[in-house]
Design a protein around this nucleic acid. Structure first.
Lengths: 146, 146
DNA sequence: CATTGACCTTTCCATCGTTGTAAGGTTTAG
DNA sequence: CTAAACCTTACAACGATGGAAAGGTCAATG
């Protein structure tokens, strides 16, 4: 009676095209830490495990992780990425929906940019009026003080 | 034997020009919550108290709170504000020190602005190539998917 | 076969600035 | 006297990430 392999070991899984979390991290640029985190908040499905408890990722999972990574690079929040992922997997959604979503985010970014530019302008303006010498009098602090 | 007033009551303190935390908040735009927080992290000195434990603020304290508020509005971090407050109360520091500090922060802001502008450009570019109609095909998601 | 080092696991904590909540004491106006 | 509006502290949460601890597993050595 030949005993069956007692556990689907990691090496087996790898040969069948699965990746452990370190591999997945290296291939997607998402840290193992964050992969686990994304799983915990439901952004990616619960990973299959080896009998030893190691997470296993198929190529589709890596694909999803790269999608998340790219979205983060564009400044989308986790909540927004949740929406993007839903749109991505919804074959029937209208592209206008996605376009609107992207444009709305671009607007948000624009608002933040304007805000920061205003800060920067004020700062540079204050600095311009400051002698910047050895003397203590400084319009920058004077302005902050009101 | 005339009993002395057992506690310096709030009303008394108010008449002597002190403000309770709600007052201070209203007059500075800093929430009571944050005033307490700033005290806990040492950004402002521990407030005097009435015998009942209510915090009391003098005008100088309000001044300091407004300084903090304005600095926050310019995007300085708490740590940076700590430095600014130190510079503010240092009568002997050179104005060049303050100017450099302000300019350094302006540079930081500039870097973040560039980053967000790049995100925005990419997003708008993607959106431009998306039809935005009833059909499901969408270059935005295609790009995010890689 | 034993050890070692590189991996993996979970759990907890920290960051930063701000807000919310809960449970209780104080003041003030009616 | 009571109710509303204040105040107090202590704790938790947000969003995204990193770090550390304590322990199990795997692969390649000796």
């Amino acid at each position: 009676m030949v005993r069956q392999v007692p556990r689907p070991e990691l090496a087996d899984a790898r040969q069948r095209g699965f990746h452990n979390i370190g591999d997945a991290s290296a291939r997607t640029g998402v840290s193992a830490k964050m992969i686990r985190h994304y799983e915990s908040i439901g952004l990616i499905p619960q990973a299959n495990r080896t009998f030893a408890g190691y997470r296993l990722y198929a190529d589709a999972d890596l694909h999803r992780l790269r999608f998340i990574k790219r979205s983060r690079n564009l400044g989308f929040s986790m909540k927004q990425i949740e929406t993007l992922l839903a749109l991505w997997s919804d074959q029937h959604r209208a592209s206008s929906e996605v376009k609107q979503f992207a444009q709305a985010h671009a607007m948000e970014l624009g608002a933040k940019i304007l805000e920061m530019q205003a800060m920067q302008r004020t700062l540079l303006d204050l600095a311009k009026h400051c002698r910047g010498n050895q003397r203590p009098d400084c319009p920058i602090l004077d302005d902050l003080a009101g």
